[in-house]
């Protein structure tokens, strides 16, 4: 039991980078980017093939980051310069990446078992793994926070918030969008590279459903920890990724679920998290409107009563 919780925390930290990437597109740019399913596997593929060819794991992971950047930039270009609908641009890249990923690996999967990887020095004990990965993820989170407070980062955030406004202040919103989508997929690819090194293999289907898992992490994090500022929002995403893995670990211990039900459960979590706040808001608005109308009516009739 405790072991599976530790395992869940460790996995949550590895996937947290992917969730941070999804946060950039989904929350900051307001752009649901499906490239993620492809670029996650691209990251894994690049890292695995480079490690098996004897390159250093650090270099392999950096190359994975670069691959993700390029994939994201392609989606961004399609969407901004080619005026392709955002969802479609992501889907097109996702499909294109499927073939590209097989090209990269030369076959549908590549094993890095029994090879020195970036994570091998810290794999055991699990406490060490969580500590080191935790620090690494926090560093990435803080770097992202800092970037989002620079002039360029502010322009990126404003692009998703009010593009017309930031254009009138001189930012090229096409460029900021491409930058954001690119950075997002870079982080996703690094996450894929780490998962490949931790699991011992890269697989062509390792990215399937990744966007939904990313969304679930972002939404769960927001629901539990809020999003008052960038600092808190990114922290919530990291913790959301961990909470998601713990929930999954617990759900799988219940005999009710098979591991193949995982994607259904994830989709349900996202659906609930998207629909419940909307219904809540609707009900709240209605009750406020009703109360205020009644109040105003009361004051009006009071005044009339006073006069007569």
């Amino acid at each position: 039991m405790i072991d599976s919780i530790y395992g869940a925390i460790a996995l949550g930290l590895l996937y947290a980078l992917m969730a941070l990437g999804v946060y950039i597109t989904f929350r900051i740019l307001d752009f649901p980017d499906l490239t993620v399913d492809g670029s996650f596997a691209t990251g894994g593929a690049i890292a695995a093939i480079m490690i098996t060819h004897g390159y250093s794991p650090i270099l392999a992971t950096l190359a994975a980051f670069g691959g993700g950047l390029v994939a994201g930039a392609c989606t961004g270009l399609l969407h901004t310069k080619g005026k392709v609908n955002g969802l479609l641009a992501g889907i097109l890249m996702m499909i294109a990446l499927y073939s590209i990923n097989i090209r990269i690996m030369g076959r549908p999967n590549v094993s890095v078992v029994n090879t020195e990887t970036l994570l091998s020095p810290i794999m055991k004990p699990i406490g060490l793994f969580i500590l080191v990965m935790g620090i690494a993820v926090v560093i990435v989170k803080l770097l992202l926070d800092a970037f989002l407070h620079t002039d360029l980062g502010l322009a990126l955030r404003a692009t998703g918030d009010n593009a017309r406004m930031i254009r009138s202040f001189g930012a090229n919103t096409d460029r900021t969008k491409i930058l954001g989508i690119s950075l997002s997929n870079g982080l996703v690819a690094v996450s894929g590279a780490l998962i490949a090194q931790q699991g011992g293999f890269a697989d062509i289907s390792m990215g399937v459903g990744m966007i939904v898992i990313g969304l679930a992490s972002v939404i769960i994090g927001e629901a539990i920890f809020g999003a008052r500022s960038v600092f808190i929002a990114t922290l919530a995403v990291v913790l959301g990724s961990i909470v998601y893995r713990i929930v999954v670990a617990l759900a799988l211990r219940v005999e009710l679920f098979k591991s193949s039900d995982l994607k259904l459960v994830t989709a349900l979590i996202v659906i609930i998290a998207l629909v419940v706040p909307y219904v809540n808001r609707l009900l709240k608005q209605k009750s406020v409107a009703r109360r205020r109308s009644a109040e105003l009516l009361a004051t009006v009739s009071l005044k009339k009563g006073g006069k007569s």
Binding site: F147, H149, T150, D151, L152, G153, L154, A155, G170, A171
Partner: peptide
Amino acid sequence: KTRGFGWG
């Protein structure tokens, strides 16, 4: 002006 990595 050009927006770079300067603190906002």
